[in-house]
Every structure is written in structure tokens, then in C-alpha cells.
Design a protein around this nucleic acid. Structure first.
Lengths: 152, 152
DNA sequence: CGAAATCAAATTGCGCGCAATTTATATCGG
DNA sequence: CCGATATAAATTGCGCGCAATTTGATTTCG
């Protein structure tokens, strides 16, 4: 008798609802900066290395141009980045921080700390959890198309 | 000098991209059933207990009527559930499985197993990770409005 | 060189998630 | 009993995420 899978047993639901809770926790912290959470992630990528192409940003965040193009336009409208066609290769668009965008990193510096406190978890626990999630993510991505073949 | 937070240091990004990877892994498994991942979660809730109100489903999944109402309408259009106004309290809408919706649980029974294999993780590891994510989620939710007060 | 294949962004369409508002029903207090 | 309050869904508006397609530039190869 194949009983239905239980919600409470599922790692997937735990990850799903944890992510949403994180999103909700970030919202009030990011709102004063005029950023959504995915926009914040893009800014993190640019603070690490300015002048990346849409493709490079997408590889880092695992997002495609369908998501990034409108998001970057909103960041541009907000005055945090500038989008320029590449000079050598006109297919690509290079994203540069504005002065304002660079300056924003100072205001955002306290956010991870604050979130860490809200979770009340130790740095070591956080780090370990992070590694496990990234490793499972990569295994899932590798499995990728292999998922789905019947067992018999 | 307050340097910008690093993407790679962040638990939040790990959770974010793990969740998206899970979503992508579920997609090809759920597509033959005609379900999206959030729809699958709703079905999990109903397979455990049929005849719940929109509110009850929302409490279980941490979703509100703005998300659930259109989702449930699509499930109804797909023939898996029926939505009925409550007889005692006409404010609430009670969601019932159809025969087809109940039958679907058999086809979905293999999905968690398949995903577990794709992640190549042990049951114990999965269970532990799940508990930690749920516990952090709840701590985040409790902190809730407390998040955001300045430190000085 | 020039057509075909490849590649980077942009666009389109759809389903979430959630804040904010609206509608309809139920309950409470005077 | 009736108006005020509270509650459950539904609705509206916006920003993702992603599949699929389109547009325009570049590379490949005959």
C-alpha cells in the first residue's frame, strides 16, 4: 500500500518554507534601501566584482536573462547600476555600479549580522548548514536530466 | 572599514538557490501529473486531511488567500479538487478532493524517493537538515517584527 | 567571402508570493 | 435588535522565476 507522502517528512517543504521566512525577514531590512531580495543578491555580486555581464551574474545566481533583464532595468531606474552594451562584443550587456550603488554597500553591511541574530544560530552551525545546502543543490543540478527515469 | 557582505558567506543564498534547484528537479516529475510544485504541496496537505478550509491550508503551508485562491481555482479547473462554501460559516471555503485528486496520490508516491536518490543523501542527513531548517524558520518568524531595530 | 550555426539579451506568457484593499458573512457590545 | 468590529476569501498590483521564442551580433566552416 503506497500511502501518500507526508508534508512533514519532506525536506523540500522545509527548504521552501525556510526560504520564504528568510524572504519575509529580509523585506523590512531591505525596504529602506529600496531593494527586493533578488535585487540585493545582484548587488552582492556586483559589490564583489563590478562590471560583469548579465550572463556572469546569472551564472553566479543561477538566474537567466528572463529574470535578470527586467530586474536590472529596475536597478538602473533606481539609480544603482548602469547597463552598457559591450564594446568588443555587442551581444553582451555589462552592468556597472553607480556611485550610489557602490555607496549602498555600507548601508547593507549590517544586514547579515542582524539576520544571524534573528535566527539565533551560531556561526559554525550556519556555515555547516550552508555547505550542506550548496552541496545538495549541486548534486541535484548534476542529477538534472537523469531525474525521471522509471525504476523498472 | 565595513566591507560588503559576500555572497558566498550567506546562508540565505544557499537556501535560496537550493530551493530553486529543488523546484527545477521537481518540475519534470510533476509535469506528467499536471501539477506545479506549490500545487503539489497543497495536494500533500489534502491527502493528509481532506475537506480543509483555505485558511487551514494556508496555515499549514504559510501561504495566504492571495496565493491560494487562484492556485485552488487552477486545481479545480484541473479536476483535482472542488471548492464549496461552508454551510455553517459561509465566509469560509472548504476544499474537497475529487476521486481523481485522491487517485493522484498513488502516482505521486514515488516522487520523494526519486528526489532523495537524486540528492544522494542519507535519510538521517535529510531528516536532520529538515529539522534544522524548520527550527530556524520558526525562530525567524518569531523574531518577525523584532527584526529591524537599530543597534544604537 | 558568405551562409549556417552559435551565442547573449530581450521579450512573451504564465504561475506563484505577498502587500493592500474589497466583499460578504459572522460575532460582539450597547 | 442593530451598528461596530472581526473574520474569511477574493481581488488588485507588482516583482520574481522560468520556459519558449525572438532579435541581433559573432563565430564557424564550406
Amino acid at each position: 500500500m503506497t500511502s501518500a507522502p507526508k508534508l512533514s517528512d519532506q525536506l523540500c517543504f522545509a527548504a521552501y518554507s525556510f526560504t520564504h521566512a528568510l524572504n519575509r525577514a529580509y523585506r523590512p531590512l531591505l525596504e529602506p534601501l529600496g531593494l527586493t531580495y533578488p535585487q540585493y543578491l545582484v548587488m552582492l555580486v556586483l559589490w564583489e566584482a563590478d562590471g560583469q555581464t548579465v550572463k556572469e551574474i546569472g551564472e553566479r545566481l543561477k538566474l537567466d536573462s528572463g529574470t535578470l533583464t527586467p530586474l536590472l532595468k529596475r536597478l538602473e531606474a533606481g539609480g544603482y547600476v548602469m547597463r552598457r552594451r559591450g564594446k568588443e562584443d555587442e551581444r553582451q550587456v555589462i552592468v556597472h555600479l553607480t556611485d550610489e550603488g557602490r555607496a549602498l554597500s555600507e548601508k547593507a553591511a549590517g544586514i547579515p549580522v542582524e539576520l544571524g541574530c534573528a535566527m539565533g544560530a551560531e556561526l559554525g552551525e550556519i556555515a555547516e548548514l550552508r555547505e550542506r545546502l550548496l552541496s545538495l543543490r549541486d548534486r541535484l543540478s548534476e542529477a538534472g536530466c537523469a531525474v525521471g527515469e522509471p525504476e523498472e
